[in-house]
């Protein structure tokens, strides 16, 4: 039932391809990814940091497609460059959080008993610790190593600082978000594993004498993938916004660089004075998330072993 090898994946892919919403979402995501990562290489995309205060807050025009911000910077290019940061954070930081959360939750749920109690009380403690205090402490510790690392990368690769720094300064952010974001996922995976491990096929695997690690990773985890996908796609928006909060506290994106979260915050503040600064970043942000969530639902449906009979 589980170990059908490649045919399971082929089935899943087949089902996904028939899900119109999922395929459309995939298309939207591809377009946004291309725009953000390939777009800035195009000659017609302006510098996101060039200031022209005489032309601040201008409306969309042929020169500035999305208009300009409060310092006269081109909003279109700021949205694209900001997208790089947000998408990277959404992908990498969420990935780190999910990886930690799945392994931790699976081990706790499968082990049960005292170990489970201990591990979950640890999660409780982390959950209740004041988040802001941790962030402030972390940014205190991480500042210098991050700067040294940036210098080292520049030294080794010989790439210009303008290209290296925006990426390397994000590393502390990935660590911080990954370290905080895994808690809920761990809880969910644990609960799912606990219910799955009582099912017959696990007992069968145990009686066959398979090792515990093998049972956990080959037999139990594939059965909790549905909820994990749903939680992951649900967690991405929160994590992307967490980035803007952390950046505001000095951890992560440094001005004049930006991200969707930061652009949206700036736009929301200026909402009453004209909504375009809010509209364009929100459009990209919301489209990405809608697409991601519909794709997540499609993936869940496709990977659901039971839905094969539908």
């Amino acid at each position: 039932m589980i170990d059908k090898g490649s045919s399971l994946w082929a089935d899943a892919w087949h089902r996904l391809a028939h899900n119109r919403a999922a395929i459309a979402s995939l298309g939207v995501l591809t377009v946004i990814l291309l725009l953000c990562f390939i777009g800035p290489l195009m000659p017609f995309v302006k510098s996101p940091t060039a200031i022209n205060m005489a032309n601040a807050n201008s409306a969309p025009s042929v020169v500035h497609w999305f208009g300009t911000d409060q310092l006269g910077r081109d909003l279109f290019s700021r949205v694209l460059y900001g997208g790089q940061v947000s998408l990277l954070v959404g992908l990498v930081a969420t990935g780190v959080a999910v990886l930690i959360g799945v392994i931790y939750g699976a081990v706790a749920g499968y082990a049960g008993g005292k170990l489970d109690d201990l591990m979950m009380r640890f999660v409780d403690i982390l959950f209740a610790l004041p988040f802001l205090v941790l962030v402030i402490l972390f940014s205190l510790v991480v500042d210098e190593p991050a700067a040294d690392f940036t210098d080292w990368v520049i030294h080794v690769t010989g790439i210009g600082r303008d290209h290296v720094a925006p990426i390397t300064t994000l590393i502390p952010l990935f660590i911080a978000i990954g370290a905080i974001g895994w808690l809920t996922i761990a809880r969910i995976v644990r609960a799912q594993v606990m219910s799955v491990k009582k099912q017959e096929f696990v007992e069968a695997a145990v009686s066959l004498g398979l090792s515990r690690t093998r049972i956990l990773f080959r037999h139990i985890l594939p059965n909790v993938i549905g909820p994990v996908i749903i939680y992951t796609t649900l967690a991405v928006p929160g994590i992307m916004l967490l980035e803007s909060v952390l950046s505001f506290l000095g951890l992560g994106v440094k001005p004049p660089n930006s991200s969707w979260g930061i652009l949206i915050k700036e736009g929301a503040d200026r909402m009453e004075a004209g909504g375009l600064l809010l509209f364009f970043p929100s459009l990209f942000f919301a489209s990405t998330l809608f697409a991601l969530n519909f794709l997540g639902d499609g993936l869940r449906d496709a990977l659901d072993p039971k839905s094969a009979n539908d």
Binding site: P237, G238, I264, A268, L278, F285, A286, L289, F290
Partner: peptide, 11 residues
């Protein structure tokens, strides 16, 4: 249902 997470609460 998803408007609530695809647009941040500060919007």
């Amino acid at each position: 249902a998803m408007i609530g997470i695809c647009l941040p609460s500060f919007v």
